[in-house]
């Protein structure tokens, strides 16, 4: 532009043009933010997940007894995992043979960026009570992106240092009523219980525990030892061994939470199973 022309450009034109440029810039920045949320966070999370995976493998490979002075006290690892540390793996065969994540302790944003997070103070894999696990549905590895696609009897496998614990998704709300006949369609359902007790008010202590529910974000009791029963009506010995997965709902919102409940149907020592692939054959999942 020549200098004479520039002088003729009125102030109004400059203001309108600058405003337009700012608006376009803002739009591009918002688009960039979408790219960040959906893709860049995945890359960062994958790196962190690799890190905890390496640590977990190292700690499982290390000999358990490292304190020879305390032979009489059982040389066990600490019962409670450390905040932010990986202590187990989750596999969901329905999401593909290669779907696996290290579960870390804690459900803060720092932990969930690494992988699915275990609600502190909920049961550990295999214990009676409820293993609560939260995971992202969008970005940051999105481990629980497809929770809405799980069907009843789909396997949720938790791997600890010594065992594979096979949980299966409990009957969906529309299947609960005649579960005994519905479950015949699939041999994998053979040991999947409907914990609802027909004769009892509200179906008994587990009357509200079904395969999948959508709840409001304040339902912290979804991961209670007996789900949705914060008053905990059963002693530990009578509690079913459950796993509960939580993620956001709707997919891009936070007004609700999607909850998936599974019940423990199988415990296979890792020495017996050998590998996860071999386990899939043992529990009747397509390999």
């Amino acid at each position: 532009m020549g200098s004479r022309q520039r002088q003729r450009t009125s102030a109004l034109v400059v203001i309108v043009r600058t405003f337009g440029e700012l608006m376009i810039t803002f739009g591009v920045v918002v688009l960039l933010f979408v790219v960040y949320t959906l893709y860049v966070t995945d890359i960062v999370a994958a790196k962190k997940q690799d890190g905890v995976n390496d640590e977990l493998e190292r700690s499982w490979a290390a000999p358990v007894a490292q304190q020879p002075a305390q032979q009489d006290k059982k040389p066990k690892r600490p019962a409670k995992p450390e905040q932010g540390a990986g202590f187990a793996r989750i596999y969901i065969p329905h999401f593909g043979k290669d779907f696996q994540f290290v579960i870390v302790e804690g459900v803060g944003s720092a932990e969930l960026e690494i992988g699915p997070g275990h609600y502190p103070d909920t049961a550990l894999p295999g214990q009676p009570g409820n293993v609560g696990i939260a995971g992202h549905r969008i970005g940051k590895g999105a481990p629980f992106n497809d929770l809405d696609k799980l069907n009843s009897c789909d396997a949720i496998v938790l791997e600890t240092e010594t065992d594979f614990f096979v949980y299966r998704v409990m009957p969906m709300p529309d299947e609960v009523a005649n579960w005994e006949s519905v479950k015949q369609r699939d041999p994998r359902c053979a040991r999947v219980p409907s914990l609802r007790k027909a004769g009892q008010p509200e179906g008994g202590p587990y009357g509200r525990t079904v395969g999948r529910r959508i709840v409001t974000p304040d339902r912290g009791d979804a991961v209670a030892p007996v789900p949705y029963r914060p008053e905990n009506p059963l002693p530990k010995a009578q509690q079913a061994s459950l796993v509960t997965l939580t993620t956001c709902h709707p997919e891009y919102g936070n007004s609700e939470r999607m909850i998936v409940h599974g019940a423990l149907v199988n415990q296979v020592p890792k020495q017996q199973a050998g590998s996860y692939e071999a386990l899939l054959g043992l529990i009747g999942e397509p390999v």
Binding site: V29, L32, F33, Y36, T37, V40, T41, V107, S109, L112, G117, Y119, A134, G135, H136, R137, I138, G139, K140, F144, V215, P217, D218, R219, G220, D221, A222, V223, T246, T247, C248, Y252, G253, N254, R257, I259
Partner: peptide
């Protein structure tokens, strides 16, 4: 500018936005 947005501004901003709360 893109790098500052991706690695400084967005990581700070994202947890403040109500898109991705997954725990109860």
């Amino acid at each position: 500018i893109v790098a500052v947005l991706l690695f400084v501004v967005f990581p700070w901003l994202e947890p403040k936005l109500p898109f991705n709360d997954v725990s109860v």
